[in-house]
Design a protein around this nucleic acid. Structure first.
Lengths: 336, 336
DNA sequence: CACCCCGTTTACAACGTTGGAACAACGTTG
DNA sequence: CAACGTTGTTCCAACGTTGTAAACGGGGTG
């Protein structure tokens, strides 16, 4: 191993504890002693052994971020913000991927107990509210973008229902009447799909418009492509003239399907997504979407975790982050 | 804290070490004792405290992956593979982002010493070979996609020169003669830009064609957009009829610039990238690119690290992962 | 001058784990 | 039946750190 407090102590001619005091910035250390110790620290290039410190303090300084998949741009972008927000607390972040599998989600929830991490920020898909509530473990847990209300853990998300309604209203406001929703899920116990569907329905009902709902298995471009292709297969009269996709990846897949079928966006079909991933700012046409405040989401999540870890815990909280509607070319072609 | 070996030992009526032996699968434990202990383990739902185990064993079971930015799709996709490959070794992965800043890169290289991680997989941009060589630390280090040859550390990458030459040859093979390279960097000490530029030059020289090189600051869509816009600003006679972008993000930015200027891809300008990020498979047109074998990259990196950690170290190795040229619509429009 | 206070420093124990030595019990062998 | 090997179990120490409490010493107070 490297140099320890003991080595430094020997060199400086003081006790181990005094070195520890200097390292930790304890106030009552005589200037002369401090200087001596600091020189020894520098000479030996001392680094605290964090395993030992963690053992002593019962903290690891590492939190886990569990999400479905890192290569979905939304989660990659979100991870960046979480890592940065955690760094402000001097925490490291380990990333775990669930692939949306129930078993993996259980494993992760369970594995939190092995003391490797102090807390968990979790974006679940498959696991249900009841199972989460049945958790016996008391490790700090924050749920991200999760629909479980009044659940057993802290929770932060945007207002998915309202956001979905806003997008749908925007599409309706363009004068479109055959507005489809793309991204409902048959199996989804949890997740945001039902919320976004609810928001879509509210808007359609409010305007007395008929609903068209396309379901998907997952939230990848390929699913959006396939679902859109199916919608287009209907006759021209039934074909939607606007589509709200439940996330941007679906929208980009759908866009590809529309364009390669020879139709135009937005002239024939207006298209909107949700997430504001960077891809959508560079697609042709650029993609109208809802931009959740990802930085705020990350900061709130880290903050909630911190409160729990500091013991300043209350009843589980449910907090909201903000969002903005970003209108781009896929719904409104700019006049040249 | 949770339950410890001591608690289990008390309940089972044996010594702490015996419980430890059972937990670690030590051979010589009497069946009766083993059963007793296992029941106690189960009853108390024992989890080893990994901080303590780590302290004892001098290992943390955590490796770091340091890369420029997680929200660049290439790195997000790569991270996924690294995390999965590390999981096969039962390692966790913490992710650190450098933003390509020299200072951050130094910090990370330095911070490896604080015993929080057993090893580091590092994709450097700013830091130079000399500085890496001057590293005094002996923590396991693997460089990823890095141009430092015969350097001080293990290293894995694709053959960037050959890959770049292959793409350029492909563009030339289409009959294009004004083939530009987009993505050179003025400041790049390290990184892959010079290699890709070299490959481009080899191909152009071989065919006696004139070179056009556009430089960029960074490797984002916005940089590709701006650089392409600048290339287009030249008169129609000078305008390139094919562009090889040094990564896919640049290419997608460039594509957007070409399309929004009213030109067509590939009819007016053929376009190719490198990385094979998913976006390029769904853009319109889809993007021709080089697909590095990311899974192989990740596995080789993890494997090199494992060898070092197991003490099976040799002289620093330089290994190559494979790649494939993916020809798509941005260079060859399919006949309908 | 005895006392106490306060700033400074130290000794000790403990966090939970595991390697190694020691030890006990038992069966085998000469 | 004594010496020995094998198997199973325990005891002890150590990894490096920090909290607690106690010791030390110098200056001010009564």
């Amino acid at each position: 191993m490297g140099t320890s407090l003991r080595d430094v102590a020997v060199l400086a001619g003081v006790s181990v504890k005094t070195v520890s005091n200097v390292v930790n910035g304890y106030a009552h250390v005589a200037p002369a002693t401090r200087a001596k110790v600091e020189e020894a620290l520098a000479r030996l290039d001392y680094r605290p052994n964090l395993s030992a410190r963690n053992l002593r303090q019962g903290r690891t300084g590492v939190i886990a971020l569990a999400l479905p998949e890192l290569d979905a741009p939304y989660f990659a972008e979100l991870s960046r913000f979480v890592i940065d927000a955690a760094a402000e607390q001097r925490w490291l972040v380990v990333i775990e991927q669930t692939d949306g599998s129930l078993e993996r989600e259980r494993q992760i929830l369970d594995g939190v107990r092995d003391h490797r991490v102090d807390g968990l920020i979790f974006s679940p898909i498959a696991i249900g509210a009841d199972e989460l509530a049945a958790r016996t473990d008391d490790t700090a847990l924050v749920l991200l973008g999760e629909r479980i209300h009044d659940g057993p853990a802290d929770h932060v998300a945007i207002d998915n229902v309202r956001a979905a309604r806003d997008v749908t209203e925007h599409l309706i406001g363009l004068g479109r009447t055959r507005v489809a929703a793309l991204g409902a899920q048959d199996s989804s116990v949890s997740g945001t799909a039902p919320l976004r569907l609810a928001g879509y329905r509210e808007a359609m009902t409010a305007h007395g418009l008929p609903e068209t709902v396309a379901t998907v298995e997952r939230y990848h471009r390929a699913d959006g492509f396939a679902a859109m292709a199916a919608l287009l297969a209907g006759g021209a009269g039934e074909r939607p003239d606007a589509v709200f996709c439940f996330n941007d990846l679906l929208a980009l897949g759908a866009m590809r399907a529309i364009l390669s079928s020879g139709l135009r966006v937005p002239e024939d079909i207006a298209l909107a997504g949700l997430d504001d991933i960077e891809d959508g700012r560079y697609s042709t046409p650029t993609l109208t979407t809802v931009a959740p405040d990802k930085s705020q989401l990350a900061h709130i999540a880290v903050d909630l975790l911190k409160r729990r870890l500091d013991g300043r815990a209350h009843a589980p909280q449910e907090l909201r982050a903000g969002y903005r509607l970003m209108v781009r070319e896929s719904t409104v072609r700019p006049s040249p």
